[in-house]
């Protein structure tokens, strides 16, 4: 029986190496010399396969964080930083593939289906962090907390993009971008700036209804 890992590796390999697009799951299976049903035992389509690639990056990050004893002791801002540093280490092993898909991040208006589960997991992760931060007093309680995930997602997309374009050695500039943008983000939601902006926005909205 074929493993999902083998399917993913071969799929990426095909995308990056083969000039011809894959016409069907059948064509892919023939290439791998497996039965089509073996593919469907893991994935329903190429999109779900690719979704699993991104989910895999996320899961590997969380797994790796779980192994760090100090991770749990950090305040949420540091946890977020820890997440990004680990995530980009994992992404580094798949840089060619991410660069191949960079369009998805330069034009974030249209989210491809294969990124949706990954984004969802990321938002859940951030929401947990935010809850933890509110409980610990690190983040102010917001009137519309659900809205918070969007800026964080925008930050993730920004950072992936930044990393794709980063030409510095060891991607040191990405480290800097992570450090600075996360600090800025957390300062905004811990100092009440965000709250005040939302409050003001709502007020203005009411005036012109």
């Amino acid at each position: 029986m074929v493993t999902s890992q083998r399917l993913k590796n071969n799929y990426i390999n095909h995308l990056l190496v083969d000039p011809e697009p894959l016409r069907s799951v059948l064509a892919f299976c023939k290439k791998l010399k497996i039965k089509e049903e073996e593919f469907y035992a893991h994935y329903s389509s190429f999109e779900s396969l690719e979704a699993d690639i991104w989910q895999g990056f996320f899961d590997d990050t969380i797994k790796s964080l779980g192994k760090e004893e100090e991770y749990e002791m950090y305040p949420v801002r540091e946890k977020m930083l820890f997440f990004y540093y680990t995530f980009f280490e994992i992404l580094k092993n798949n840089r060619s593939y991410v660069l191949y898909r960079q369009d998805a991040f330069t034009k974030p208006q249209k989210t491809p289906g294969y990124l949706k589960p990954f984004y969802k997991s990321f938002k859940n992760y951030v929401n947990e962090l935010v809850d933890e931060g509110v409980e610990g007093g690190e983040i102010i309680k917001l009137p519309i907390q659900g809205q918070l995930k969007n800026p964080f997602l925008a930050q993730l997309i920004f950072l992936i993009n930044f990393w794709c374009n980063d030409t510095s050695k060891n991607f040191e500039k990405t480290d800097e971008a992570i450090e600075k943008s996360v600090r800025l983000g957390f300062e905004l939601i811990s100092g009440g700036v965000f709250d005040a902006a939302v409050d003001f926005g709502k007020f203005m909205f009411r005036q012109f209804r």
């Binding site: 100090e70 950090y74 540091e78 930083l81 820890f82 060891n170 480290d175 450090e179």
Partner: peptide, 15 residues
Amino acid sequence: VPPLSGPLIKKTFMK
């Protein structure tokens, strides 16, 4: 000046 974060220190050490 604002301090370096713990995670970045760790990353710098690893590197």
